[in-house]
Design a protein around this nucleic acid. Structure first.
Lengths: 225, 225
DNA sequence: AGCTAGATGTCGGGA
DNA sequence: TCCCGACGTCTAGCT
C-alpha cells in the first residue's frame, strides 16, 4: 500500500471521459496495482480510480516539472495522473486481509425464514429454497396450511423491482398445473409504500420481517442444544 | 485528511452486522469526519466505512493496550475500530476539491438520438425529450412514418428493470386517447438476453445503439459549420 | 469467461 | 424530506 499526497490533475478515458483540475489529493496505490484518487470528503467513493487488474507506469513529466502516472487496464481504459508537487509519499506492507464477516444480508434472512416458515403463516411449510425456474430461482417456495403453493420473495428493503420480480415468477409458476394456483408473498425488513401498493394491487401479501426477532428465535433454538 | 496504518479489528453495527479480525489496514479519516478502512486490494471499495455526517470519538482502550475509535451517525449506525498497534499516523490539509468534469454520459446518448430519430426508424420524428407523465418522464416520445406514437427508453446497458420501466410508461400513455396506440422501443448500447426476451414478449422492439457512430454523425454535422 | 442479482450500494435531481 | 433512477455502479456467486 502506497500513500501519496500530491497536487495533481487527473484524466480518465474509458467508459466515459473525466477530468480533475490540479489540486491537492490523496493517491492510493494498492498491492494489486489498483489506484484510487481521493478528495478530502466522502468516505466511500474515490474521485477517480482504476480497478485491478491493471498496470501502473511512472514517468517524469516532459518539462521535468513533476511525475506522470499512467494506469491502464485490459479494456484499454486509461487513468493519467499528473503530479506537480508531492507532499507525502510512503509505502507500507499490509499482507493479505483475513476478510469481512457479514451477518444480516438477504442470504441470511432467507436461511432464517426457511427455518421458520410458520412466522409467515400458521401451518406453513417449506418446499425448497432457491426453487429453480426458467427465469431464475424463487427465494422460497412453500406450502400453506391448506396445501396451496406459496412463492416468497425476500428483500432487505422491499421496493418496486422486487414486486415486479415476484410477479414474473408467479406468472410462470401459475402456468405449472402441479403448482397452480400459486400465492405470492413479499417479505422484507422494510417495504416502501409504492412497493406495498403495487403488491397489494396485484394480490401479493406483504410481510415486514423483524430480523432481530428471527435471529432471536434461532438463538433460542441453538441454546437448546 | 488523516492517514493511519494500524493493526486493527473493526466492528460495524447498523444496516447489517460485520466484523473484521485484527490485521494491518489503512484507516482513512476525511475532513468531514467520514472514516473508511481499506485492505491492500481493490481500488474502489473499502472493507468498512462510515459515511458523513458522523462523529468520531477517540479513546484509550480499557486495558491501555491501544486506541478505540467510535464512529456514529444520525441513524445510530456504529463503526468501532480497535487499534492494537499504530504503524503510521499523518495528517494533511487538502482544501476543497474543485470537482470532477464528466463527459459522454447517458444524457448525451439521449441528445444524440433526439437529433437523429431516423436512426431508430425511417421517417421517424421527435415529439419531445423527457416527455412528462404522472410516473416520470419518458426519455423520448416520437412519431413514426405513419403518424403513430413511439415511446423510447434509453439505457447504456439494457436490463430487465429498463423494460419494466418502459412497460409502465406504455401502459399509462396508452390510456391517453390522443396518443394511443403507443409503440415501445427499448434502445441501449448493449441489451442483456433476458431483457430482450422480456421486451420482445411484450411487443417492445429492441435497438442496440452505436455510441461512436452516433457521435460520428454528430461530429460530421458540426464540421459543416 | 459471461451473466445475474444483491448491495451498509452511493449519488444527484425533483416533488 | 422522501422517492426514484443512474452509475465508469462494484462485487460475489454460479454456469
Amino acid at each position: 500500500m502506497r500513500l501519496v499526497i500530491a497536487r495533481c490533475s487527473v484524466d480518465y478515458v474509458g467508459r466515459l471521459t473525466a477530468h480533475l483540475p490540479m489540486a491537492p489529493r490523496l493517491v492510493l496505490v494498492k498491492a494489486d496495482n489498483s489506484v484510487s484518487v481521493h478528495a478530502d470528503d466522502r468516505a466511500y467513493k474515490p474521485l477517480n480510480w482504476m480497478s485491478p487488474p491493471c498496470t501502473l507506469k511512472e514517468a517524469e513529466a516532459e518539462d521535468g516539472g513533476g511525475r506522470v502516472w499512467t494506469v491502464v487496464n485490459k479494456a484499454g481504459e486509461k487513468l493519467i495522473i499528473t503530479m506537480e508537487e508531492v507532499l507525502h509519499d510512503s509505502s507500507h506492507e499490509l499482507g493479505v486481509d483475513p476478510g469481512l464477516i457479514k451477518d444480516g444480508v438477504e442470504a441470511h434472512l432467507q436461511e432464517l425464514l426457511a427455518d421458520r416458515m410458520e412466522t409467515l403463516g400458521e401451518g406453513w411449510s417449506l418446499i425448497r429454497r432457491e426453487y429453480p425456474t426458467a427465469i431464475g430461482p424463487v427465494d422460497i417456495l412453500g406450502r400453506d396450511a391448506e396445501g396451496g403453493t406459496v412463492a416468497v420473495e425476500i428483500k432487505r428493503r422491499g421496493e418496486i423491482d422486487g414486486v415486479e420480480q415476484l410477479t414474473r415468477y408467479l406468472e410462470l409458476l401459475n402456468r405449472d398445473p402441479h403448482l397452480a394456483p400459486v400465492q405470492g408473498l413479499f417479505a422484507a425488513q422494510e417495504i416502501k409504500p409504492q412497493a406495498r401498493t403495487l403488491a397489494t394491487d396485484r394480490g401479493i401479501r406483504c410481510v415486514t420481517l423483524d430480523y432481530n426477532a428471527l435471529r432471536g428465535i434461532e438463538d433460542d433454538k441453538l441454546r437448546l442444544f
